[in-house]
Simulated scan of single mutants.
Amino acid sequence: MAQHIEIIEPDARGRIRKIGFVHFMSISTFAASMGYCGMCFGWRMAHQLWGTPACIGEFFGACALVLYVLIFIRYFHKLRVDIEAVRAEWNNPVKINFFGTFNVATVLLAAVLAPYHHGVASVFWYAGLSIIMVFSWILLKHWLYDRQRIDTVTPAWLLAVLGPITIPIAGNVLQNPGYQDISVFCVAIGLVTGIPIIALIFAHCIFGEALSDAAQPSLMILMAPFGMGYITYSRTFGPDNFTALLINAGIFMFFPVVAKVLHVMRHSPFRMGWWASSFPTMAFANGVIYYSMDHPALWTQVLAGFLLAFGTMLILYLSFKTAWAAAHKTLWKLY
């Protein structure tokens, strides 16, 4: 760990050596579980639409659950042995937003588990619902009470929006008491907060300092509200012209955003922060898959298939790079 320890206070070096890898582990690691949840949903829909093997989606769902449990255990260990590092993440104006990855992963797993056990899935859903709403209120209070700077506005801000609009994904499947009212409430949050935050992110991209190469792939988070927004709104109120506008706006934005992200990935060393691009890519792909169901046409089917394949290849690439680093015990260098 010499590379990192050289820039750490001498008195802390021994403690960090004792703590090990978890000192560097970020809460954003839960984005890996989110990405696999997105692949599970996409391939489940592919099974219904195109007859692909059902085991593909279920395998990715199992991977999502295993990753969630492993990451949870490791980060909980960090919370016990290195509370100051966790507190530093929470107090960082940029990193605090990534605590939303844990919240979203929790509620997404409810949808993964719903076909297997309604009770267990409901526990995940109610837990995710509670922590998502509390986290969103905390962030809103932080934005309103503390003066913000344009350079702290990153795509991760959208996690405060992404959290509530994922709640109806599992809610509409589980149909627990009050799910319809909860879905309407969550859609309202997404509409009211999502539009101004996207505008702020664009302002930062245009007028503020450029994001670091490690953070550039997080621009894909811009795509998540369009895909998740379409699924949530259309499954709550039914598809209409507004949902068509959402998905078409996302289609317009997708190719410039993904071109920028892929350019960074080709010319920069791999970082764990790249996992932030995984779920948003699949979320938009899944939105287009639902759109192809509601508006059947050759071009919607082709685009849905292309985006599903692209998102799957992206996540498998990130998985390979992560597994390679873990096998060579260099994963701690990638945070």
Score class of each variant (00 low, 15 high):
residue 26 S to I: 00
residue 49 L to S: 13
residue 63 C to P: 04
residue 41 F to R: 05
residue 27 I to W: 00
residue 46 A to K: 02
residue 25 M to C: 06
residue 62 A to I: 11
residue 45 M to V: 10
residue 38 G to S: 10
residue 49 L to P: 02
residue 32 A to E: 08
residue 40 C to F: 11
residue 62 A to W: 14
residue 25 M to P: 00
residue 36 Y to F: 15
residue 63 C to M: 15
residue 24 F to E: 10
residue 30 F to S: 04
residue 48 Q to P: 03
residue 61 G to H: 09
residue 54 A to D: 09
residue 62 A to C: 11
residue 60 F to H: 06
residue 49 L to M: 14
residue 36 Y to P: 03
residue 29 T to Y: 07
residue 33 S to E: 06
residue 23 H to G: 05
residue 35 G to P: 02
residue 37 C to W: 02
residue 28 S to C: 07
residue 47 H to T: 15
residue 49 L to V: 14
residue 42 G to N: 11
residue 24 F to M: 05
residue 24 F to N: 12
residue 35 G to Q: 04
residue 27 I to P: 01
residue 58 E to S: 13
residue 46 A to W: 00
residue 25 M to N: 00
residue 41 F to N: 01
residue 56 I to M: 07
residue 52 T to V: 15
residue 52 T to Y: 08
residue 46 A to T: 04
residue 45 M to P: 00
residue 45 M to F: 08
residue 34 M to L: 07
residue 41 F to C: 03
residue 35 G to T: 00
residue 47 H to C: 11
residue 23 H to A: 14
residue 63 C to A: 15
residue 28 S to R: 08
residue 51 G to N: 09
residue 34 M to N: 03
residue 35 G to S: 06
residue 34 M to I: 01
residue 43 W to G: 00
residue 59 F to M: 11
residue 39 M to L: 15
residue 60 F to G: 03
residue 56 I to N: 07
residue 31 A to G: 13
residue 61 G to K: 11
residue 31 A to F: 00
residue 47 H to Q: 14
residue 27 I to V: 15
residue 48 Q to I: 09
residue 57 G to P: 05
